[in-house]
Design a binder for these strands. Structure first.
Lengths: 339, 339
DNA sequence: CTGTTAGCGCCTTCAA
DNA sequence: TTGAAGGCGCTAACAG
């Protein structure tokens, strides 16, 4: 039914080995004449290599696994798309694993991926779990399996590890500086979980900006959210008796919650309160008051993650790669100058 | 390094075949004693089957392919999540293929999937391409490869085919009837591409509602969009000199465009104009004026798609399965009663 | 009830 | 420059 290298061998009167050699472009110098013959026959017969056979023989599968908490989240979907595009460019495949933040399910996936001789795994852990025991255990599992691993926004670990990272300290600084330069001095912050590196870095940046501009820092203006829409709403409830002219939400989803939270108190954006988000979710340019935000190049990070993984497959004994990405302030309508 | 059935065979003093038999729960009755022994050894040695070997031997891979235009689109991401969850429940994997609406890339994917001995493929074609020659060619390609295929919202074809479908005629009817029952008589419609079955069905439903309630139909109140945000904006521009009190956009994304388009003309929702969307995008409950919409059970459809595919793998010679899903009107704040 | 045998399709020595 | 042979890990016949 399906044509194999044997068929091509038969058709050309050559041996399967020779056919394999030319089909894989091996340096073993084959005469141009036979090469042509093989290629012609392969095209003629519509040859496609059987990846199970290749995989069994070589132990490689030319596919990567992506483990994310929830593919419906635009953030992860964008990352997935980046990886997927990079894979496609190089003829690789991507296996999608959505864990719902369940570490046990994550573990199962890792084992399935190993069974499939996956060549590399990219993991983005769900916020509340990062740094937990079960997550570390899963990471160790991957490492022990000797499968290349790329993480996102996670540099600190007991040993160096491949990663794609943004300088969130700088991101926090940029957002805060933007507000300060607009004349805001009373700024409220709705953060992510403090256990998350990305969140604590942002916060450090905020404090540094306050310090640089000689503003007094006040922990009471802080609400610790969890990156969900609801946390934005709750944050405004919590902060409602404070006095502020601006809010910096540590991601766009919470900023949307802030919008609606403020509306509840009849406060409008940006007239009464300026709002800055973080991520540049695709909706942020679309909503009625377009959101000023810090853009993360998630798509590019996904691409790079795939590239690192593929590179590691070819060069297993190289040092861990950490690629840094730039953040960018996108000024829209949700922030305004005050006197 | 990795333990194989041979290792287990050696450890237990049995043959690889026997080990395989118990590990796969084959009906060939094996004594409980040896079964126990094998299972114990497998656990002991941490055995995991090599799926490349299984795949090479059996021609099956226990994985499905999903081909979508863009995983960043919440609609497709939700479908993917449904499939992924169903796969996970049964120990299968999902390979993600995002085509960007490029038929050539779609074709490449199909061939890659075949090379991987994929057991089934779910395709959701990008709107402008549905029904085009290249798309039909790709579908034929899959069919010719004898790989089970599931489509979404696509029933009409020259031969019956597995599908998960909503009755969009009814959906169009429900949305229109809702507006009519609220007193609206001058309703504008922003449709999807007329070449799409889902869009033309909705439109038929709208017309039927008008007919049932004795309202005159007017083609001038129609704008053909393409399901993008921009189309919603454009639609309002196009309709700006018409007289209407309500708009029915054929998906939520276009409804968001309608919101902002109306704002441009200083029209507010729902005071001046009522708006109905379609899909129930996750943002529709979140935005400042929550959107009345028709909910499609996309997630469930994804689950069912995976189940159909897996079923087809076990029962290749059964008749095509078409599963219908119910639509539901979700009334929120974007529609109001007028006198 | 269990073991033997024979490949699935491919790649990789090694020999010619 | 090419061919022959062996085996990756597993399963399906067929024996015993």
């Amino acid at each position: 039914m399906k044509t194999t290298i044997k068929d091509i061998a038969q058709a050309t009167g050559l041996s399967p080995a020779t056919v394999s050699l030319v089909l894989n472009n091996r340096p073993s110098r084959i005469s141009d004449a036979t090469r042509e013959r093989v290629l012609a026959a392969a095209a003629e017969l519509g040859y496609r290599s059987n990846s199970a056979a290749v995989s069994l023989r070589t132990g490689r599968s030319y596919s990567l696994g992506l483990i994310v908490p929830d593919i419906r989240n635009d953030y992860y979907a964008t990352y997935a798309k980046g990886m997927e595009d990079a894979c496609q460019e190089m003829g690789w495949s991507l296996i999608l694993c959505s864990t719902n933040g369940n570490p046990e399910r994550e573990r199962q996936y890792i084992e399935t991926l190993q069974a499939k001789s996956i060549d590399g795994i990219a993991v983005v852990t769900t916020p509340p779990l990062t740094g937990t025991q079960s997550f570390e255990a899963n990471r160790d599992l991957i490492l022990r399996m000797q499968i290349p691993l790329v993480q996102m926004d996670l540099t600190g670990y007991r040993e160096p590890i491949n990663a794609v990272v943004c300088d969130h300290e700088k991101g926090g600084y940029m957002a805060t500086r933007h507000l300060i330069s607009l004349g805001h001095q009373k700024i409220a912050f709705i953060t992510g979980p403090s256990s998350l590196e990305g969140s604590s870095s942002r916060l450090k940046g905020c404090m540094r900006a306050f310090h640089d501009y000689g503003l007094p820092w006040d922990d009471k203006m802080l609400y610790e959210g969890d990156y969900t829409y609801a946390a934005g709403l709750d944050g405004i409830d919590y902060l409602s008796d404070r006095d502020f002219t601006a809010v910096f939400a540590f991601n766009d989803l919470m900023a949307y919650g802030v919008y609606n939270g403020l509306a509840k108190y009849s406060l409008s954006v940006p007239e009464d309160v300026s709002v800055v988000g973080y991520d540049d979710h695709f909706l942020s340019s679309i909503i009625s008051v377009p959101l000023t935000t810090i853009r993360q190049p998630i798509y590019e990070m996904g691409k790079e993650a795939a590239r690192i993984l593929i590179y590691k497959t070819e060069h297993p004994d190289t040092k861990p790669v950490i690629t840094w990405f730039d953040l960018k302030l996108i000024v829209r309508k949700s922030t305004r100058k005050i006197c």
